[in-house]
Amino acid sequence: MSDTSGISAAEVVYRHVKDSVLTGELEGGRMVSEGEVSTTLGVSRTPVREAFLRLEVEGWLRLFPKRGALVVPVAPHEIDEVLDARALLETHAATDVVTRPDDLAALVEALDAVIARQHASLEAGDLPGYTEADAEFHRLVADAGRNSLLAGFYRTLRERQQRMTADSVRGRSAAAATVLDEHRELRDLLAAGDVAAFGRALVTHLDHTHRRGGTR
């Protein structure tokens, strides 16, 4: 969990449960109780209840009185909508950045670092670290475009993207390794300035990872 100094108990619970949902530790369809979280974090049930209500409003949990909270599964229509938006935004950003050699070189260098971090997380069996690096890879591409409005919109997809990746590769090391290989291919196509091939490879990558990768 991130630094919790100076924040309320409800905020601590909120961050803990939300992080657990996003990284796949709490899978879609699982029931979690106030008592379970209260015991884990050493807090009373009141801040847990407050955090659960906040997470229900955001759509991560569905509350059932006296039973606990259901982790809301990722819906198929949400997968389609998120992937379509990501493909459009990342390809648009790639089209822009390849016209700026210095910025493209900096992007490729940053992608190399993220790929190395993602590989290390995979080797260590660190699913949260792996999914965070996956989201960072794609965010770097999206941010490389010079449209701040589109980049801001893309960041709103980050949490959904991270959770979808965790759902897709959990317990499937071969699929996780394939994602890394496809990231390397996307990096190479950007470095070569081949936007058309990058766009095709990106759509294939997203489809392999999330549509055929196990989120349905």
Rank of each mutant, 00 (worst) to 15 (best):
M1F: 13
M1D: 13
S2A: 15
T4P: 00
G6N: 12
G6H: 06
A9V: 02
A9F: 11
A10I: 02
V13M: 08
Y14A: 05
V17M: 09
K18N: 12
K18Y: 10
S20V: 01
S20T: 05
S20K: 14
T23N: 15
L26V: 11
E27H: 10
R30V: 14
R30Q: 13
G35T: 09
T39I: 01
T40H: 03
T40N: 05
L41W: 05
L41I: 08
G42T: 12
G42E: 03
V43F: 07
V43K: 08
S44R: 09
V48E: 04
V48K: 04
R49I: 08
F52Q: 10
R54I: 01
V57C: 00
W60Y: 15
R62S: 15
R62W: 02
L63G: 11
K66T: 10
A69Q: 09
L70V: 12
V71L: 03
V72G: 06
V74P: 02
A75E: 12
A75S: 07
P76L: 06
H77A: 12
H77N: 06
V82C: 10
V82P: 00
L83C: 07
L83A: 08
R86F: 01
L89Q: 02
E90N: 08
T91D: 06
A94W: 04
D96W: 09
V97M: 07
T99Q: 14
R100E: 13
P101R: 10
P101Y: 06
D103G: 11
A105P: 01
A105F: 05
L107K: 08
L107R: 11
V108M: 10
E109Q: 15
E109M: 05
A110Y: 01
L111E: 07
D112Y: 00
D112S: 13
A113E: 14
V114M: 02
I115Q: 11
R117L: 00
R117D: 12
L122K: 07
E123G: 01
A124P: 02
A124W: 01
G125M: 08
L127R: 15
G129S: 07
E132S: 13
A133N: 12
A133H: 11
A135D: 14
A135P: 02
E136H: 12
E136T: 14
H138A: 13
R139C: 05
L140D: 02
V141R: 12
A142L: 07
D143G: 02
L149M: 06
A151N: 11
G152L: 05
G152M: 07
Y154C: 00
R155S: 14
T156C: 04
T156S: 15
L157I: 10
E159I: 04
R160S: 15
Q162R: 15
R163I: 00
T165Q: 06
A166K: 06
S168F: 03
G171A: 13
G171S: 09
S173V: 11
S173H: 07
A176Y: 09
T178V: 04
T178S: 09
T178N: 06
V179C: 06
L180F: 05
L180K: 10
D181W: 01
E182M: 13
L186Q: 13
R187C: 04
D188T: 11
L190H: 11
L190M: 08
A192H: 01
A196L: 04
R200A: 14
R200P: 00
R200G: 12
R200W: 00
H205I: 04
D207N: 06
H210V: 02
H210W: 10
H210Q: 01
R211I: 03
R211S: 01
R212Q: 12
G213Y: 03
G214F: 02
T215M: 00
